[in-house]
Every structure is written in C-alpha cells, then in structure tokens.
Simulated assay, not measured.
Amino acid sequence: MAKVMANSPALVKGWLALSGALSGGVLPAPVRERLAIATAEYNNCTYCLSAHTYIGAHVAKVDAEELERARHAESTDPHAAALLALSGAIARGRGHIDETQLKTARAAGVTDAEIAEVVGNLALNILTNYFNVLADTDNEWPVVTPHTHG
C-alpha cells in the first residue's frame, strides 16, 4: 500500500502522521485493529481486512473469535462492543447519528476522548479502504475476503 501511496508524498505523510498520532491515543491497539476490521468489512476492502486481521492476530494479539466478531462490529467485551457500534453508526450515518446511540455509548463508559478517536480511526480507515479499493493494491497479506453484503 505504501508503495502505491508513494505516488503522492503528501498523502503518505498525512497517512503516517494520523496513524502515528492515533497509535499514541487512548484507544489500545486491539481496539484500533477491531475498528479497522469493522470498517474494512463495511467498505468491502479486501486489502485492509486482510492486513488488519493479520495485524490484529499477530501484533495486537486479538483472538480469532474476536477478530471474526469485529467483522460484524461486535465484541464480547462490552466496552469494545460500544466503540464498534458507535463507529458503525457514524460510518452508516456519514457522521450523523441518533442521540440515543451516543447515550448508549456513554452508558457503556465511552469517554469524550474515545469518541474523538473513534472518528479519527474511522477517517484513517476510510482513507486506506478507499485508496486500496481504488488502486486495486496487490495484497501481500493472507487474504481475508469480505462477507457478501446485501
């Protein structure tokens, strides 16, 4: 991906800056990887789904069942589930969500900082999803194909 993205040094710089900043935020790597998986599944991005499933398993140490649940924006961890549900609602609503969705997230303990970073991670993941779908980036990861969406 970076090789293809390097056609625009400005894009690479922006992607790296946002990715680096969010990696130092309040959301831990296992949550960020699940958010990335849910977004890649939603956007039908095989490259990102493959990459984040691999990174989720081997780097963030998320178990296989949780990785599969993330594809459906679900988790057995109530806090992670609330973050995934919020991210999914924001994506589907293109930024507009029902007030009850926000209240539900807050009731699950989601903080203002986490809400902000969910939006940041969603933006980062949409960037890479759209880029890789459009560029038809060669997939060097073990392939994970998005589920069929109806």
Rank of each mutant, 00 (worst) to 15 (best):
A21W: 03
N7A: 14
A105T: 08
G120A: 08
H72V: 09
A60M: 05
A2W: 09
E41N: 04
L16H: 12
A91T: 11
E41K: 12
H72P: 03
E33C: 04
A81N: 13
T39S: 06
Y130E: 07
A80R: 10
P30E: 04
H72Q: 14
E99P: 07
D77L: 01
E33F: 00
A6N: 08
V4N: 03
D112C: 10
A64E: 14
R34A: 14
E140C: 06
L35N: 10
K13S: 09
I115K: 05
G14C: 05
L16C: 08
P142V: 03
Y47G: 12
A51K: 05
R71E: 00
A113I: 10
V59C: 08
A91H: 15
H58P: 03
E66R: 07
S87W: 03
A107N: 13
G56M: 00
V12D: 01
C45R: 11
V143L: 11
A82R: 01
R34Y: 00
A40Q: 15
M5C: 14
V110S: 00
T104E: 09
V31R: 02
N139Y: 06
T104S: 14
T76E: 09
L86P: 02
A6G: 00
R94H: 06
T148S: 14
T104P: 06
A70S: 01
D63P: 00
L67I: 10
V143H: 09
T111Q: 12
M5R: 09
V4W: 03
E117W: 12
H58I: 08
E114Y: 13
H79K: 11
A64V: 15
R34N: 06
L127S: 07
A107Q: 10
V133T: 07
A105F: 01
A82I: 10
G14T: 05
P28V: 02
A89T: 04
E68C: 05
N121E: 15
I126Q: 05
A2L: 13
A40R: 11
R94V: 07
P30M: 03
N139K: 07
T39G: 02
K61V: 03
V31K: 04
R92N: 07
V62S: 09
N121T: 04
